Amino acid sequence: MSKPLLTVWYNSRCPVCDAGISRQKRRLVEAVKAGRIAFRDVNAEPAALAGYGVSLEDIRRRLHATEADGKLLVGADVAIAVWLRTPGEGWLATLFGNPAALPLTRYAYDRFADLLYAWNRRKGRW
């Protein structure tokens, strides 16, 4: 099988993250089966993105993804890349990923991710 077009790295120990990825996997079942997209739990492969200078804590804080050409995506850019590949969700990528909205999308994602990360740490989900 060839390398997936998009590999998404997420933290399965975060219940919000895990639920969101589970939802996307169900929506993208054909793409996953065909090997076009992969979802990988960083807790099973903590050093997976070390070559990019990305730590386990970085991935626990924000979604990360790699494209087949090796490009690294982080945070809101990962969500947009997944929406582009998800049937019926391309409009979300267009709305939140357009040049005018993207800075606000990234800011809002990062603030939410910071809160979620702090909540998970308080709950001991590591």
Rank of each mutant, 00 (worst) to 15 (best):
R36T: 12
I37C: 05
I37L: 08
A38K: 09
A38C: 01
F39S: 01
F39E: 00
F39I: 02
F39R: 04
R40Q: 13
R40N: 03
R40L: 15
R40T: 14
D41M: 09
D41E: 10
V42N: 04
V42P: 08
N43R: 13
N43W: 00
N43T: 11
A44V: 12
A44N: 08
A44L: 15
E45D: 14
E45H: 14
P46E: 06
P46M: 12
P46T: 13
P46H: 07
A48W: 08
A48H: 10
A50L: 09
G51W: 15
Y52F: 11
Y52P: 03
Y52A: 05
G53T: 09
S55G: 06
S55Y: 03
S55Q: 00
S55E: 02
L56T: 06
L56A: 11
L56R: 06
L56I: 08
E57D: 15
E57C: 00
D58Y: 02
I59Y: 03
I59L: 11
R60P: 00
R60E: 04
R60S: 05
R60L: 02
R60W: 08
R61K: 14
R62C: 06
R62E: 08
L63D: 01
L63I: 05
H64Y: 09
H64E: 02
A65N: 09
A65P: 04
T66F: 04
E67P: 01
E67T: 11
E67Q: 15
D69G: 08
D69Q: 03
K71V: 10
L72T: 09
L72C: 06
L73F: 01
V74Q: 10
G75A: 08
A76Y: 12
A76G: 15
A76E: 13
D77W: 03
D77V: 04
D77A: 10
D77E: 15
D77G: 10
V78G: 11
A79E: 13
A79V: 13
A79T: 12
A79H: 13
A79R: 14
I80C: 03
I80Q: 05
V82M: 07
V82L: 07
W83I: 12
W83Q: 12
W83Y: 05
W83P: 12
W83C: 08
L84Y: 15
L84C: 09
R85D: 06
R85Y: 07
T86V: 11
T86N: 11
G88W: 07
G88E: 11
